[in-house]
Computed example of a mutant assay.
Amino acid sequence: MSWAPTRPAPSPAVRAAARPRRSSSAGRWVRRVIAGSVLAALVLIGGTAVRVWQVARIDDYSHADAILVLGAAQYDGTPSSVFQARLGQAYRLFGKGIAPLVITVGGKRPGDEYTEAAAGKMYLTDHGVPADHVLAVETGSDTLESIDAVAGAMRSRDLSSVVLVSDPWHSMRTRTMARDAGLDAWTAPTRTGPAVYTRESQFHGIARETVALLWYKLTHFPADFKYTAEQ
Rank of each mutant, 00 (worst) to 15 (best):
R21F: 11
S37C: 08
A188L: 04
P100G: 01
S2H: 12
E209T: 07
P10Y: 06
E113M: 11
R19D: 13
V162K: 00
V162Q: 04
G152P: 06
Y61V: 14
T174I: 08
S81D: 13
P222E: 09
L70C: 12
A212N: 08
T176Q: 06
R92I: 08
S156T: 14
R199N: 12
F83S: 03
K108H: 07
G111D: 01
I67Q: 05
S171M: 05
V38F: 07
L144G: 03
V50A: 11
L93M: 04
H133E: 13
R109C: 08
H127M: 08
M172H: 10
L144R: 07
L159V: 05
A49M: 03
T174D: 04
F94K: 01
H63W: 04
L87I: 01
S146E: 09
A178G: 01
H204M: 07
T104E: 01
S141E: 15
H63G: 13
A41H: 10
V105I: 09
S171G: 10
W3A: 15
V38E: 05
A9R: 11
A16E: 09
G36Y: 03
V162W: 02
R22N: 10
D167H: 04
A117N: 00
A153Y: 09
D142P: 02
R86C: 02
P222L: 05
V50W: 14
I98D: 01
R32C: 06
S146N: 13
S80F: 10
R31T: 08
K121Y: 07
L70F: 08
R92V: 13
R31Y: 15
Y61A: 15
A136K: 04
E200C: 11
H133A: 07
V82G: 02
R21E: 08
S25T: 13
A56K: 06
A41D: 10
G88R: 00
T48L: 03
Y61F: 12
F94V: 01
S156L: 09
G27E: 10
Y75K: 04
G97E: 04
L183N: 09
A207T: 13
A185V: 08
D126E: 15
K96W: 14
G95L: 02
V165L: 08
R32Y: 15
G107P: 06
G36K: 02
R92N: 11
S141T: 15
A185E: 00
M1A: 12
S171I: 10
H220V: 08
F225I: 11
H220S: 05
S166K: 03
A153V: 12
Q54D: 10
V30H: 12
A9K: 13
P194F: 06
A149V: 01
E116C: 11
A18V: 09
S201P: 01
R173G: 02
A149C: 08
A149W: 04
P168W: 07
V43W: 09
T176F: 05
S25A: 14
R191F: 07
L101P: 02
A56I: 06
H204Y: 14
M177Y: 01
T219N: 11
R57D: 10
L159E: 04
A40T: 09
T228G: 03
E138C: 07
P100C: 09
F83V: 07
F221T: 15
S62N: 13
W186S: 09
L44K: 07
T228W: 05
S81T: 14
G95D: 03
L68H: 06
T104S: 04
L218R: 13
A26C: 08
K121A: 03
Y114F: 14
